[in-house]
Design a protein around this nucleic acid. Sequence first.
DNA 1: TCGTTGTCATCAATCGATTGCAATATACCC
DNA 2: GGGTATATTGCAATCGATTGATGACAACGA
Lengths: 342, 342
Amino acid sequence: MANKVTLKQIAQEVGLSPSSVSLVLNNRPCRISEENRKLIKEVAARNHYVPNQIARSLVMRESRTLGLIVPNIESRFFASLAGSLEKRCREDGYALFITSSGGSADDDLELLRQLVTRGVDGVFLVVGDEFSDDRALREEVSHLPIPAVMVDRAIEGLECDKVMFDHEMGGYMATRYLIEQGHRRIACLVNARRSNTGRKRLAGYERALREVGLPIDARLEFESEYYIPSAYEASEAVLATDATAVFASSDNIALGLLKRLHEMGKSIPGDISVVSYDNSAADVLFEPALTAIEQDPGVLAEHAFGCMSKRLAGRGGRRAEEVVLEPELIVKDSVLELTKHN
Amino acid sequence: MANKVTLKQIAQEVGLSPSSVSLVLNNRPCRISEENRKLIKEVAARNHYVPNQIARSLVMRESRTLGLIVPNIESRFFASLAGSLEKRCREDGYALFITSSGGSADDDLELLRQLVTRGVDGVFLVVGDEFSDDRALREEVSHLPIPAVMVDRAIEGLECDKVMFDHEMGGYMATRYLIEQGHRRIACLVNARRSNTGRKRLAGYERALREVGLPIDARLEFESEYYIPSAYEASEAVLATDATAVFASSDNIALGLLKRLHEMGKSIPGDISVVSYDNSAADVLFEPALTAIEQDPGVLAEHAFGCMSKRLAGRGGRRAEEVVLEPELIVKDSVLELTKHN
DNA sequence: TCGTTGTCATCAATCGATTGCAATATACCC
DNA sequence: GGGTATATTGCAATCGATTGATGACAACGA
């Protein structure tokens, strides 16, 4: 292993002071003779000199590094968000410190502290969806010495920049579409118990029904965690109803549902119609392709970085900024159009 | 935004010197009265004091942070690897700085430099598979001032710790299994042009054929990138052959192939048998479930961390360590057993 | 009274950079 | 030769921690 080369060593070799070397290498306006400038640059290059960012950020009080906390990097959506965000950060010369928490508020808190003490200039937080005890986390976020942007979800009632898709609207759009296609008995499969986003999607579903005067039937609302097996379990009951369509409120939920449908020999959309959510993965795999509500992680990343960028430049307002994005309905082949009078 | 609290401030408030505070908070053996110890701890807690890791690692010459570079965090396999590795690192008190390069050697180099100058204590590299010009990267890696462990793939001919699955063996096992099931005309779909791992899997495929005296028929070897559309394109030609089975050398390649099969109304394994690779994603989705060569990212992570850990403790040998792991054949339902005499 | 021992706490250097201010050297002018 | 301007460069403090070397003070023994 090679040794780390320091400013001082370069200075020594050139025969000038560290200050001069620093000045030249950072292209600061200063009066160092052209001759020495060249010499310094040459020696620095020859020795593969790379400034120690640790030392540098100590005095500069900025690291040009940002942090991201996601609940689970193995989820497609978060991975994609992380990827987009990292690219965006790099474009502006920021490195992104990606961390994955496991979803509990305690882990989130621990990671947040780690990031802060490691000197990131700001953090993106994808936290606060699960209903765990988040008092400590909330406390920490509100006392943060650096800007924070909450992405995709939020800790309720916390004054902080937020960027997210409108989950209520997504639920509404999905259901509304099914209604327009002539469906009247529409089931839904949501994670309302443990997820804020799930609750919102459910609210959207109900709004769409109410809007056209359809009854809200508790027997058509089913609960599922955001995992395939959980949805698979729940799906049997869904299929025992007289629903002609199902709103599956996440990609994994749709996958669990579909697996069960396959097994029961049901066909889509012949036997039952399905609108999925956010199914980046399933896309290619299914016959027929799934009609779904889509949220582009790239868009989320772009806006999140925008907020952060403003704060970092000190251009953020005193009040928190809230960006709400509209998801999109992508129509494919998993919904059957029913004849009007049924 | 709250202010950062420093050691000095705590010291001031307590009325003792910064040294004393540091000593106490780090539980160093030292002679500070029990009374003052308590006082210090209390004041530190009340002020939410968290030591500045930046300053700390400057003097300690270690940051307890590790870095990871993957080609693409949006890929299931790498995301899973990153997730496992992060958990493992955290268990030992290390934070993991995950970065995603896009796959070019230039990006890899850039990220590597970033990580090093930000003071990570070691790096995990998932680089060097694509055939891009990697001279600069190779140079950098060999002069690194910190330990590096290459994971899942390697820059050829570089003296460096390596942990990876045996890709040749994987290709061999898949093909061998097909042969055992009575298949004689076995096609393969591999990324041999742009990937070292792909080449190895192809070599394994050929070895299995040779071993039982089957001809190696270039007309049965098809090329595909590691992307679904690419495999989808290539699949038509595969299906035009008289092959009774296909070895699809990556998850995405299998997905592209399956999509085309679906479209052509072919059934698995009735019309054609398939062995896939590493298909964590497809798992749940398909009827029938895919027989595949599996490599557990968690195992990779565990061994990679093991190597790193040794180096960090100075217990690594002078020579590089190479860990080669055996993948596993998971038999499911996508391969048809042919009658013996055909 | 002086020396010794023990207890409790602080000093000051250090890590590797950045930067305002001071210092030196050379040139130029009268 | 003395004085001023200008071109170059270096000093030393600073960021926030860590740590080996020291200091201050009280109690005790001879």
